[in-house]
């Protein structure tokens, strides 16, 4: 009996979906807009994340060592740093490499190169270039290095000459605040958009079901159970969600083709079309799932109101 009822509910919902074509069209239109907003939030989120990562990648700190610092001590310090969870990457630049890079950087500055030659020896110490996972974590790393600065050479002098965090602290703190504010702001905007979209969809479906309130009372009078009355409406809501999700996913295709090169030029790290193609299965399930859940829950709640009477 359960299977017969499910079959009848699906058939009834499907037939009602086609016969109430005007109401179905209006509901699908509104739900498509809702899913378009929800899906666009994924793209905005990905673009924002790429932009913030770009900023994060530009921030680093360098630890400069004295020229006499033994390489094994530097490498040992690098290993200690790598064990910290905040560390994203560490690059060791040896004295020779530092000199090579210095020369390359000043290849057009003959005066500087001449002065360097006159010294007769490499005046540059080795350094470690450190990137943290979050900009807010640099302070902790700098404090760790301060403790490690007690590390000394055989002559008793500290091996760390300078940590440039303290010079860049203000800029790093400012960037951290910008990133945090951007994330909070975007979360608030996303939450407002999501809530507004859900309310609009819910009201549209509620209005669609309002037109059937007399039908619901007749169904009750002929002795139909609440679940048998509710079933076709919920199935119809699910159909609104599925059709709207398919339309939304189709609309994203030309939209991302158009926006892809623009975002790539502007943000350099992300092409929205590539992102859409790469993440299609994830976006598909999020948009479809949101549509189905939104349609089913809205219909369920809207019918419940008339079943109570």
């Amino acid at each position: 009996m359960i299977w017969i009822n499910i079959k009848r509910i699906i058939k009834s919902g499907f037939v009602s979906f086609w016969r109430n074509s005007v109401v179905s069209f209006a509901s699908i239109l509104v739900m498509t807009m809702t899913l378009f907003v929800l899906g666009s939030i994924l793209f905005v989120g990905a673009t924002l994340e790429a932009s913030l990562n770009q900023i994060r990648n530009k921030v680093d700190i360098n630890v400069y060592f004295v020229t006499e610092a033994p390489e094994e001590d530097i490498l040992s310090l690098r290993d200690s740093l790598e064990s910290l969870p905040e560390i994203s990457s560490i690059e060791y630049v040896s004295r020779e490499e530092a000199l090579f890079r210095f020369r390359a950087r000043h290849e057009n500055d003959q005066l500087t190169l001449q002065a360097l030659d006159e010294l007769g020896e490499n005046p540059l110490g080795a350094n470690l270039n450190i990137k943290a996972k979050e900009t807010s974590q640099y302070e902790g790393i700098a404090e760790f290095l301060e403790d490690e600065s007690a590390l000394s050479t055989a002559e008793g002098t500290p091996i760390i000459d300078k940590v440039n965090y303290f010079q860049n602290k203000n800029a790093i703190d400012k960037l951290t605040r910008i990133i945090d504010s951007s994330e909070t702001f975007s979360f608030i905007i996303i939450a407002i958009l999501v809530i507004a979209s859900i309310i609009i969809t819910f009201n549209t479906i509620r209005l669609a079901i309002y037109t059937s309130k007399d039908e619901i009372s007749v169904m009750k009078l002929v002795g139909a159970s609440n679940s048998y009355i509710r079933g076709p409406f919920v199935f119809e809501g699910i159909m609104y969600g599925v059709v709207s999700a398919i339309i939304t996913l189709i609309l994203f295709y030309p939209m991302t083709i158009w926006l892809g090169p623009l975002t790539e030029n502007f943000f350099s790290d992300i092409n929205l079309f590539d992102y859409y193609i790469d993440q299609f299965s994830k976006i598909f399930f999020i948009v479809l799932g949101s549509g189905v859940i939104l349609g089913a829950v809205s219909s369920y709640l809207a019918v419940r109101k008339y079943l109570r009477k």
Partner: peptide, 27 residues
């Protein structure tokens, strides 16, 4: 109980056959 009303109260998007069938399905 079978009910008949002045305003008929048929389900507007169902045919005559489906209106009657609905009462049987509900039962």
């Amino acid at each position: 109980i079978g009910t008949v009303f002045q305003d008929f109260r048929l389900l507007p998007n169902k045919t005559a056959y489906e209106n009657i069938a609905f009462a049987m399905e509900a039962a």
